[in-house]
Amino acid sequence: MNPWDDWDHIVKIDPDKTLIDGETFEDVCATGTDAIAVGGTTGMTEEKMSRVIEACGKYQLPVYIEPSHDGAVVHSDALDGYLIPVVFNAGDVAWTTGVHKEWVRLDGDINWEKTFTEAYIVLNPDSSVATVTESNCDLEADEVASYAEVAEKMFGQQIVYIEYSGTLGDPEIVQAAHETLDTASLFYGGGIHDYDSAHEMAQHADTVIVGDLVHDEGVDAVRETVKGANDMKREIRPS
């Protein structure tokens, strides 16, 4: 059994951004989310990552980091593991194997038993991650589904991550990717901002992820997305 098999909802905290005034990492961890991921595309440093990891690691919730480069990797007893993005539709192959090679070359303390890769498919051309990775986001549903199938069947990926980063994606595209998977879990991130958007996307993905929401609107909004995701999963799971 994988750690994420029972996760319906993840909060991704960007260490380069602040929380809403008056809110704490304890508040974020108390929203009902199933796990915390720590990471972002730009401005990532070991110091910033460590600050969030140590704060969230005090609570009874899984904490994983999603580093964007080797300089943002932190080894800490407060961590449950590492989720490493591999961008399958990247135009710059550094984001498929290059930065990963550098991490392995420079880091002699990798705990491989706690290290997992995520097959990213980036679909918002205006996002920072699309710009940095030079991703080809002009994809039809069957192309996205094929990327998902390649990730699982050819590369043995256990997580496929549909990333719309900042905008709500096309449910039909997310569903097409989900339908092609046999055992891999489908993560979805992008534009989930309330109960309804979380409820909708939880129908098409195994796990939904909110990121900007915690920084822009705060924990009450995050709590609504947790409820939306959980309600949908109760509806579609057999009793």
Rank of each mutant, 00 (worst) to 15 (best):
K153Y: 03
A229C: 13
H75I: 13
G190M: 07
V210A: 00
G108N: 05
E200N: 09
E217S: 12
C56Q: 07
A78R: 06
Q203K: 10
R234H: 07
V150I: 11
I159P: 07
W112G: 04
I13P: 01
D194W: 02
E118I: 04
E26H: 13
K233L: 06
Y120S: 11
R51F: 04
D212I: 03
Q203C: 05
K12L: 15
T45V: 05
T115E: 01
V160N: 06
G40P: 07
T115V: 05
Y59K: 09
N111Q: 05
I84M: 13
A78M: 09
V11S: 01
G169C: 07
D194T: 01
H9C: 10
T45S: 12
I162Q: 01
T115N: 03
A130H: 10
E66L: 02
T24Q: 12
D196E: 15
D27S: 13
D27V: 10
G108Q: 01
G156D: 00
N230V: 08
H193S: 14
A202K: 02
Q60M: 09
D170K: 10
G40N: 02
E47Y: 05
I173Y: 02
M49A: 03
I13C: 01
D8Q: 10
V73H: 06
F88S: 10
N230Y: 10
H100P: 00
L19Q: 10
F116G: 02
H204F: 14
I65S: 09
I236T: 08
H178Y: 13
V132W: 09
I209T: 02
E163Q: 05
A30V: 00
N124C: 01
V174D: 02
I236E: 04
R234Q: 12
P171I: 09
Q175M: 11
T31I: 11
Y161G: 04
V132A: 14
S127Y: 02
T33E: 00
I121S: 07
Y195E: 05
E134H: 11
E140G: 14
V63F: 11
I36Y: 14
A35R: 06
A177N: 03
S68K: 04
K101G: 08
K233T: 02
V28E: 00
A90D: 08
D220K: 11
E113H: 06
V28T: 01
I10S: 06
V219Y: 08
D14H: 01
E113M: 06
D6R: 14
A221R: 04
A55S: 14
G108R: 04
I173D: 03
A90H: 10
I20S: 00
D16G: 08
R223A: 15
Q157M: 15
V132P: 15
K114T: 05
V74Y: 05
V87M: 09
T18G: 04
E54Y: 12
D16A: 15
T18N: 15
R105Y: 12
M154S: 11
T180E: 06
A145T: 03
H199L: 10
L19A: 12
T18E: 15
H199I: 04
K101M: 06
